[in-house]
């Protein structure tokens, strides 16, 4: 499997759900170089999921655009695949069939599907379960199947919306490390939304904080740590508290200001 990343360029991205609703966010600019793992953190309701859905091509921006390698994102595509909070596997299919389903849509030949699916399943360490019914897997294993189902498309960009929030702490911790390792090995981009500061530090190359209403990116922080990252490392702990402080300052100061203004 060889995947290359993409340069993500967000230019003056503005969104509102409908004419009556307020702006979800206003004129966001952001560039993410090929191969970067980018975390978006921010308080509930600041527009993180909306931003992700625009990048996935399932929502349209009101103004501005999202470019991947200079190409405007207009619709869903196997080149930018979104993974959801729950795995949403197809229960009548085996692990292998679930992972290969996107390739059958793209009318790949049987042999090629098998080859790619085997690789993807190996990557997420589910080889012993290839022919299992997905209903017999644990929650973490199911999320791995969903990950393989996205990876098999060899996307340039993987979008994750709180992907591990439904899992227990141990499973979550191991998946966070695995996903980062896979992304680094294959070189594709990740943009993921999280509420979990630890998750941002363990997985991301860079974290951006969204705040305000309408939302915007109020802070960017490089997570410049060597791999593999362990939660208890002093450097991880140090960066974590820095991000936490920044997050609280940024999120609250921005949150309070417009609220006071609109209160009159």
């Amino acid at each position: 499997m060889s995947i290359r990343g993409t340069e993500i360029k967000i230019e003056g991205l503005t969104h509102r759900y409908n004419a009556k609703s307020p702006l979800t966010f206003n004129k966001i600019d952001l560039v993410s170089p090929p191969g970067e793992v980018l975390a978006i953190i921010g308080r509930s309701g600041c527009g993180k999921s909306t931003l992700l859905h625009i990048l996935a091509g399932v929502l349209k921006p009101t103004e501005g655009k999202a470019l991947l390698n200079g190409e405007s994102v207009e619709s869903p595509s196997p080149r930018w695949v979104m993974m959801f909070q729950a795995p949403h596997l197809f229960p009548w299919m085996t692990v292998r069939e679930n992972v290969g389903v996107g390739l059958t849509f793209a009318r790949w030949s049987k042999n090629e599907i098998k080859k790619r699916v085997d690789e993807a399943i190996e990557l997420v360490e589910l080889k012993p379960h290839v022919d299992s019914n997905v209903q017999d897997l644990s929650g973490g294993q199911q999320q791995r199947v969903a990950l393989a189902r996205s990876l098999v498309m060899e996307p340039e960009l993987l979008l994750l919306d709180e992907p591990f929030s439904a899992l227990d702490a141990f499973t979550r911790a191991s998946l966070q490390k695995d996903v980062r390792a896979i992304a680094k090995r294959l070189g594709f981009n990740i943009v993921f939304v999280t509420h979990d500061i630890d998750e941002a530090i363990i997985m991301a190359d860079r974290a951006v904080i969204m705040a305000g209403s309408p939302g915007n990116i109020v802070h960017k922080l490089d997570v410049d740590l060597p791999d593999p990252r362990e939660r208890q490392d002093p450097s991880v702990q140090e960066l974590r508290s820095r991000l936490m402080t920044t997050f609280e300052q940024a999120a609250y100061s921005k949150e309070e200001a417009p609220a006071a203004a609109s209160g009159q």
Partner: peptide
């Protein structure tokens, strides 16, 4: 959600009928 996932992986309406609704 099955439709959402399928569309994300590049399914067209025929794929959705054949691969999802019918077996479901």
């Amino acid at each position: 959600n099955w439709f959402k996932v399928a569309r994300n992986l590049g399914a067209n309406p025929w794929h959705i009928l054949k691969t999802i609704i019918m077996p479901a």
